[in-house]
Amino acid sequence: MATFLAAFLFLLAFFLLMSIGYLIKRKAVQGSCGGLGALGIEKACDCDEPCDRRKAREAKELARQEKLNKHRII
């Protein structure tokens, strides 16, 4: 139980310090290597023509956004 409590307190302190750092600097946490952007890839799927599953997912998201905009109060 003591080990669990120590690990929990350590993680709690870690996240608290990270949140204070974010509030002070207003800069998001990012990886050190730059990820796909460092390789010149703009997105995870770098194909010219997306697959049918991706097209369906994008159409569903577009319909959701249109529905939200249609019923927006402000």
Rank of each mutant, 00 (worst) to 15 (best):
Y22N: 09
T3A: 14
K25E: 11
H71N: 15
M18V: 14
D52N: 01
P50H: 00
L17I: 15
E42Y: 01
L12T: 12
D48S: 03
K43A: 11
D48P: 00
A28H: 03
P50A: 00
L39H: 09
F15R: 03
L5A: 10
L62C: 09
A2L: 14
V29A: 03
C51D: 04
I74T: 14
G21N: 13
F15N: 10
K70L: 15
C33N: 14
C47N: 07
E58A: 14
V29E: 01
E42M: 04
L36T: 10
R64Y: 12
A6F: 07
G31F: 01
A63H: 08
L17A: 15
D52T: 01
F8L: 14
A7D: 12
M18H: 11
G37W: 00
A2G: 12
R53Y: 06
R57L: 04
N69F: 15
H71W: 14
E42W: 01
K67G: 11
A44F: 13
H71K: 12
M1S: 08
G40M: 00
A59V: 01
L5T: 10
G37N: 01
E58F: 12
Y22D: 03
L68D: 10
L23T: 04
K70V: 13
K67L: 15
K70M: 15
G35V: 04
G21D: 12
F4I: 07
F14G: 02
M1N: 05
S32A: 11
P50N: 01
G40Y: 07
R64M: 11
L62I: 13
V29P: 10
I41H: 05
D52L: 02
G34H: 05
L39A: 12
R57V: 01
A44N: 09
L11I: 11
C45S: 13
G31T: 10
R54M: 10
C45P: 03
L5K: 10
I24L: 13
E61C: 04
G21V: 05
I41G: 00
L9M: 05
N69H: 15
A7F: 06
K60E: 14
C45G: 09
E61K: 13
N69K: 15
R57T: 01
V29I: 14
R26E: 03
G35D: 04
R72C: 10
M18P: 03
K70E: 15
D52W: 01
G35C: 11
I74N: 15
F4R: 06
D52H: 01
F14V: 08
G40I: 00
K55W: 00
L5N: 08
D46V: 04
R64F: 13
C33K: 12
C45L: 08
L62M: 14
A7V: 09
N69A: 15
C33M: 10
K27E: 11
G37A: 02
A6S: 10
A56K: 08
C51M: 00
